[in-house]
Every structure is written in C-alpha cells, then in structure tokens.
C-alpha cells in the first residue's frame, strides 16, 4: 500500500508541475464561468457543461492515457527494476493519472460557482451528477488509453490512430449508425433494440443519463418516452450504471493483464 501511495503522490506532483493539467482545468473554469454569465446559473449551465464534457473528457483522457505510456517507457522500466509488484505499479499509475485529471475537471467546473453567488436551488444534485459522470468518463477513457498504449507499445502511430478512431466511433459514428438502423428498419418497433445498442457505448450511456437527469427527454418525442420509461426506472438506472461500471472495469482489467505479462 505504501508503494501505491508513493507512486500516486509522484504522479500528482509530476502532472501538476507539467502545468497543462492546470490548462485543462482552466478550460472547464472558463466554460462554466462564461455559461454562468450568459444564462444566469440555472440548469442550462450544467446541461451545456455536460455537453462539452461528453466530447472533451473522452478524447483528452484517451490521448493522455496513451501518451503517458509512450512518454514514460524509461520511467516504467526504472520502477519495474525496483522491488515493486507490477499490479501495484499499474494501479498506482492508472489512478495517478486519472485522479489529477478528474480533480482538474471538478475544480475547474465547480469553482465559478463561488463568485457567481452559489448554486441555484435544486441544481446541487445536477452538479453532483455531472461531476460524477465526468469523473467516471475520465477513468474509463484513461483506462482505454492505457490499453491502447500497452497493446501498441512499439507502434505509436497505430496506437494513436486507433485511439482517435475509437473516440470518433463512440462520439460520432456510433450515433450515425444508430440513425441508419432506425431509418432502415423504421417500420418496426426498434426502441428496445436501440436501448440495447446504446448500452454498448459509454458515451451514449452518459449522454442519455444526462438527458434523463435534466428531464429533457420530452424533446425526443415517442423515443424519448420509451427511453424515459426504461432509463427513468430503477432497473434502467441500475443497468446503465452497471454498464458504465463494466466499461470502467473491463479496460482497466485488460490493461492490467497486458501490463503484467509484458516484456519491457
């Protein structure tokens, strides 16, 4: 446990010294601040923050996860020659990178509340929800970045290429495909299958959970109603939460497995 904390502490130090994590936090700070100025601090602020967050967090976390593996090869080797368990090292590095990113995001998004006269009534739970979801996405995509970096350890171009494709696929193409399916099979009742397909994409799960939390599913007509019936139910929340946890667990487990068997 001591070894884990040492690694974690060192990651925090290194990352915050590199300053760009501060820049990352600053983006969210400016964003929230601007939104507060324009829309007065109600629900709109958090809906907008979550929209940006859904695109930004996955790509930044993914790229940073993979970049970290590529940049720290010598550092990894140094640590692996010490009397340190590989699994401990993996968890130390993984949480040591995800946590500072999460902290930067949370502080950046929440700080402007301070000088904009606090939270509007009723948005405390919304704020908490957005921050929790963003944190979860950070850990999920740093994990995916680790997997890509470790799998394509000697082929950086491939590693980066596939990472960007993964992001593009989840953020944009996936929804396009769903649209195509809906368009092609429009004559059938597709809602249940669409819910199922949506469940396979962590960015979609997050997006829908936000729609539910902010009660804007009504904008989506009949589908929205079906979504609302499912995702709004306890079962739906349980299943989608479970899927997100699975998205958290599987990449980090795969990453750990590769890391434990790897030749450095």
């Amino acid at each position: 446990m001591r070894v884990y904390w040492q690694i974690l502490r060192n990651e925090f130090q290194t990352l915050f010294r590199a300053k760009w994590v501060l820049g990352y936090g600053l983006i969210f700070l400016l964003l929230t601040d601007t939104l507060f100025r324009f829309s007065g601090g109600g629900t709109e602020v958090w809906v907008s923050v979550s929209n940006i967050m859904l695109l930004l967090i996955p790509i930044i976390s993914l790229i940073y996860g993979i970049l970290y593996i590529y940049q720290s090869r010598d550092y990894l080797e140094l640590l692996l020659t010490q009397p340190v368990n590989r699994s401990t090292l993996f968890w130390g590095l993984y949480t040591g990178i995800s946590a500072p990113l999460t902290v930067a995001f949370i502080i950046g998004s929440a700080l402007p509340i301070g000088w904009h006269g606090g939270l509007a009534s009723g948005s405390a739970s919304q704020l908490f929800f957005v921050l929790a979801l963003g944190s979860l996405l950070t850990f999920i995509f740093v994990g995916l970045g680790f997997v890509m970096g470790l799998y394509f350890y000697d082929d950086k171009i491939k590693g980066f290429g596939f990472s960007i494709v993964i992001w593009l696929f989840m953020a944009v193409i996936y929804d396009g495909l769903i649209m195509v399916i809906i368009f092609m099979f429009g004559d059938y009742s597709l809602e249940t299958s669409v819910i199922f397909i949506t469940m396979l994409n962590p960015m979609d799960i997050a997006r829908i959970l936000i729609l539910m939390e902010f009660d804007i599913s009504a904008l989506m007509g009949y589908s929205g109603a079906v979504f609302n019936r499912f995702f709004g139910s306890n079962l739906g929340i349980l299943v989608s939460g479970g899927m997100l946890v699975l998205w958290l667990a599987v990449p980090s487990w795969v990453g750990l497995r590769i890391f434990n068997r790897k030749d450095f």
Binding site: T14, D74, T81, Q82
Partner: peptide, 30 residues
C-alpha cells in the same frame, strides 16, 4: 529485486523531475 542494483544501457528518467527528488522518490518507494 531488493538485492539487485541495475544500471541500464540508456539512462533516461522522468524529465520534469529534479535529481534529488528522483533519488529520494526511489528511496521512499523501496
């Protein structure tokens, strides 16, 4: 590995770290 000291072919370390920090980090780690 506690009983082994290793000096690699190419010495490359975390770039932002200060030498004294690196030494005490490894000390704390072990």
């Amino acid at each position: 590995r506690r009983q082994i000291g290793y000096m690699p072919q190419q010495a490359r370390y975390p770039e932002q770290m200060i030498v004294s920090e690196l030494l005490s980090f490894i000390e704390d780690l072990r």
